[in-house]
């Protein structure tokens, strides 16, 4: 399998006042195409910093990071912006949809920054992505007319629309209730089955059981990196959840 992400001894230091904070202290791992990796760790473990580096929003102080075979460490701001546009799909905890904007327009956004697509192609790809996340009926709903689960689906469609090498999810279920969380997990597992590479950063250990590999961070080190032998099916768990109409 092709290596999508390759980290070699990544360090990231922040200078806060007179002190140097070591957020990442030499991480090395590779993620192959088609993996569904959860990165876990308590707060302060360095997972946000790692996510920023994986997402090309930040560059490591030392060490090499190859995304889809391209070395990111020496890239400039604009080159990284273009790289993010072509290779990465972000899903955030708080969705980050544009307010008062339709689902289609939100999903189109990454393609707006890619001159290779014209209006017609952009629209077609966006509709395809929205259908893929199960929102084919709500193309023209505005973001403020949707539930949290629907908004997160739009955000996932937005992450898919540019056919990224890797989808980076940052606590993607953190703002959702249990039932909707599992619905989103079902969607992620479906995407995984279709062969997409997913990195899911979370502090919720439960989610780890539904991914193919778990990496645990602590104080800037990797404390465990295990393949998940027994991947749970999120759809089954969802079916077992008590139907709760109280809320």
């Amino acid at each position: 399998m092709k290596e999508i992400i390759k980290l070699e001894n990544i360090r990231r230091n922040f200078v806060v006042g007179d002190e140097v904070v070591h957020a990442l202290r030499g991480l090395s791992f590779t993620i192959k195409e088609g993996e569904f990796v959860t990165i876990m760790g308590s707060s302060g473990s360095g997972k946000s910093t790692l996510l920023n580096i994986l997402g090309c929003l930040d560059t490591p102080t030392s060490g090499e990071y190859y995304l889809d075979g391209v070395s990111v460490r020496t890239m400039g701001k604009n080159a990284r912006a273009t790289l993010r546009n072509r290779k990465i799909g972000f899903v955030f905890q708080n969705y980050n949809l544009l307010p008062k904007t339709t689902a289609i327009e939100n999903v189109e956004l990454p393609l707006m920054y890619n001159p290779a697509y014209n209006t017609v192609q952009r629209r077609k790809k966006s509709i395809d992505a929205l259908i893929a996340v199960g929102l084919g009926e709500r193309l023209n709903h505005k973001s403020n007319q949707m539930s949290g689960g629907q908004m997160q689906r739009v955000a996932i469609a937005r992450a898919l629309v540019n056919d990224p090498a890797v989808i980076l999810a940052d606590e993607a279920t953190g703002n959702l209730d249990t039932r909707t969380s599992f619905e989103i997990l079902v969607l992620f597992q479906k995407l995984h089955d279709e062969g997409r590479t997913i990195i899911f950063v979370t502090h919720n250990p439960e989610i780890a059981q539904y991914s193919s590999r778990n990496i645990t961070l602590r104080d800037g080190h990797i404390t465990s990196d295990i393949e998940n032998e027994k991947i749970l099916d999120a759809a089954e768990t969802l079916a077992k959840l008590p139907v709760n109409d109280d809320y």
Partner: peptide, 16 residues
């Protein structure tokens, strides 16, 4: 600010 952050993370350059 959040919208700008989002646009940047999905590939908008400073000039955009």
């Amino acid at each position: 600010t959040r919208e700008i952050g989002l646009r940047m993370s999905i590939g908008a350059k400073g000039i955009d």
